[in-house]
């Protein structure tokens, strides 16, 4: 564990608490893509199935359980508790276009051709693009509540912080994980436009609005 990865994990935790806070205080999931949240459930279940056959540390297991449980809880909040506040007509990104290529990538790029490893690789690729329905929705509405942008910033910062962690691990342990690194760079890249607007507008006290 190094400081970059730890801060990345904290940022990931923070993003989930921000999202829960947004849904519960506004009693609404307006502006949040259900499709993106559903993809995260798939990502976490596919990746963290190893909970049952590989023990790394208490930290590792606790975080995995938290990410599985919280992502399922968010789906419950969106689909049942605050269902009327979700507008499916603006959440229209076709997730098949993400699932199918990720499955193909996982079948080609994996560290061992077995069920668990292909599933792991699938979850890594899917995580990289799972934010697209959310960003697509943001693009369509052209604006977002401040709290939603803080959620996205924390979520984007999480994988961005993993990049210095991988550089650090390369120099200290002499190891690279090319699948995670490639997907992580793609994932961070998808946030660049968002980060630009976040830093130049939201953090300067303005509303998040995309140019028309």
């Amino acid at each position: 564990m190094n400081i970059f990865r730890f801060l990345g994990d904290l940022s990931h935790l923070a993003s989930i608490f921000i999202l829960l806070h947004k849904i519960q205080t506004t009693r609404s999931c307006r502006g949040i893509s259900f499709r993106t949240q559903a993809l995260y459930v798939v990502v976490f279940i596919a990746r963290y199935l190893d909970l049952f056959f590989r023990y790394v540390s208490l930290y590792n297991s606790a975080m995995k359980l938290f990410f599985i449980a919280s992502s399922c809880y968010i789906l419950y909040l969106m689909k049942i508790r605050y269902r009327p506040t979700h507008d499916p007509s603006i959440d229209t990104f076709r997730v098949e276009y993400l699932l199918a290529p990720c499955l193909i990538l996982a079948l080609i790029f994996n560290y061992k051709f077995n069920f668990a490893e292909v599933l792991w690789s699938f979850s890594i690729w899917l995580e990289a693009v799972a934010i697209l329905p959310q960003l697509f929705m943001l693009q369509r509405t052209g604006e977002a509540e401040n709290i939603t942008t803080h959620y996205l910033a924390a979520l984007g910062a999480y994988r961005a912080l993993y990049i210095p962690n991988w550089i650090y691990r390369y120099f200290t342990e002499g190891l690279v994980d090319p699948i995670a690194v490639t997907a992580g760079i793609v994932q961070t890249g998808l946030y660049l436009d968002f980060f630009y607007v976040y830093f130049t507008k939201v953090l300067q006290g303005q509303k998040f609005e995309l140019p028309a």
Binding site: R54, S57, N60, Y111, Y162, L175, D177, A180
Partner: peptide, 10 residues
């Protein structure tokens, strides 16, 4: 075989 994968990452 040596796995390149970081099994300890989330």
């Amino acid at each position: 075989s040596v796995s390149l994968k970081f099994h300890d990452e989330l």
